[in-house]
């Protein structure tokens, strides 16, 4: 089991995505491509040793990398067209799952095991009860959970407010020296997890499609991170608003 936190993995997924975009937008010409060899490698029609040789070229040469991406996209589309034309392989095509999501899936495997699920649920209820009781004893707002040390960031959305799915705008204040902000949004069961990076304003509109799966009335948890000039990060409490 990894010691990595989900936000690390989301961050990693975001930075990998930025690198992929840069590679895609790269206009460097590269060297002439052996298009057939790339196609054969992508479709596993070459021996493993030769496939690795082609991947070496892809690592070093932008034209080969472009050809690889094109071969990948076209061979996958061809396989789907083939399935549609023959009716063979009625099962759903393999889904491209990002690395972070794959780890997340692995974490959820236990959910299919009733005994573990029941024990885990009991533990969550127990911990939740203790947290709420302690917060109430301390006179804190029970709607504000976790990350209590960083009180400098405050929500600008009253917690009783239910926000519309199409206009789920969250605002916050504090930490004037922050150079950028990150926001993470989740549902209570963490099935929904969304993160936005490098925001420059103290406001964020959660995309409606992120909230699509949540029913009306669901509690949406959100937390803000301020990136400070020295590179350190200050986290807010977790704020809660309901979905209208």
């Amino acid at each position: 089991m990894s010691e990595r936190r989900p936000e690390d993995e989301t961050l990693e997924a975001a930075s990998v995505e930025r690198l992929r975009t840069a590679l895609r937008d790269d206009e460097a010409p590269g060297t002439p491509v052996d298009a057939d060899r790339v196609w054969l490698a992508v479709t596993n029609a070459l021996p493993a040793e030769e496939r690795r040789e082609v991947v070496e070229r892809v690592a070093a040469d932008p034209a080969w990398a472009r050809a690889w991406r094109l071969a990948k996209a076209m061979s996958q589309a061809a396989a789907e067209a083939e399935r549609a034309s023959t009716g063979v392989g009625a099962e759903a095509p393999s889904k491209v799952v990002p690395l972070a999501a794959r780890r997340e899936q692995a974490r959820r495997v236990w959910q299919g095991r009733p005994a573990w699920a029941a024990m885990a649920a009991m533990l969550v209820v127990l911990v939740g009860t203790v947290v709420v009781l302690r917060q109430q004893q301390a006179g804190e707002d029970p709607e504000r959970i976790r990350g209590g040390a960083a009180e400098a960031i405050t929500s600008g959305v009253p917690e009783a407010t239910a926000l519309a799915r199409e206009q789920f705008v969250i605002r916050w204040s504090g930490v004037p020296q922050a150079v950028s902000w990150s926001v993470q949004v989740s549902s209570e069961d963490l099935k929904l997890f969304h993160r936005a990076e490098r925001l420059e304003t103290r406001e964020y509109t959660v995309p409606a499609d992120v909230l699509r799966e949540l029913p009306a009335g669901a509690r949406v948890l959100w937390q803000v991170e301020a990136r400070l000039p020295d590179g350190s990060v200050q986290r807010s409490s977790t704020f809660v608003n309901r979905l209208r």
Partner: peptide, 25 residues
């Protein structure tokens, strides 16, 4: 090192772990 280079290259090309594993053998 070469093995990391190959694995990361395929990851950056958008391949999932199982796809990269299969391609690299």
């Amino acid at each position: 090192v070469q093995d990391r280079r190959l694995a990361v290259t395929l990851h950056l090309q958008g391949h999932t772990v199982p796809e990269a594993a299969e391609l690299l053998g």
